[in-house]
């Protein structure tokens, strides 16, 4: 069994600079791209690109307000993202346990074969 966080969600949150943008949207409710660009050490263009990816992943949505476009977080999607990523850590734990079982069984088999060989040779 494997949990696959969907690609778009993963690449949206996996990127640290994008996470910075998401953080700012979460912390400030409704914000414009130009306000965001003033808060981060990368260009306005990069901010727009990050917002596009976040919107594509469903993590933020936009609303036009007068002349401005304002971004806000989509709370249900954020909740889903959080749960999926927690599950990812659990998934690695399961894989490590499986590796442990396989390696210990292979090792026990090797010792057993070695003993048999020695007994034959004696």
């Amino acid at each position: 069994m494997t949990v696959q966080v969907d690609d778009r969600l993963w690449s949206a949150i996996g990127d640290p600079s994008r996470r910075r943008v998401l953080d700012l949207v979460i912390g400030n409710e409704r914000v414009s791209a130009s306000w965001l660009a003033d808060q981060v050490p990368f260009s306005r263009q990069a901010v727009s690109k990050h917002l596009g990816v976040l919107e594509g992943a469903g993590l933020v949505s936009r609303q036009r307000q007068g002349r401005e476009v304002l971004y806000q977080v989509e709370i249900d999607r954020l909740d889903q993202a959080t749960r999926e990523m927690t599950e990812l850590a659990v998934q690695w734990d399961r894989r490590l346990v499986a590796i442990k079982r396989l390696a210990e069984a292979a090792h026990a088999r090797a010792i057993e074969e070695d003993n048999q060989r020695r007994n034959r040779d004696d």
Binding site: I13, G14, P16, R19, M85, L88, A89, W92, D93, L96, V97, I99, K100, L102, A103, E104, A106, H107, A110
Partner: peptide, 19 residues
Amino acid sequence: LNIEREILIEAPADVVWRI
């Protein structure tokens, strides 16, 4: 975004490596 996990295995490293 980091996940770090570890486990102790009762087998030599070359066996674990193959798995």
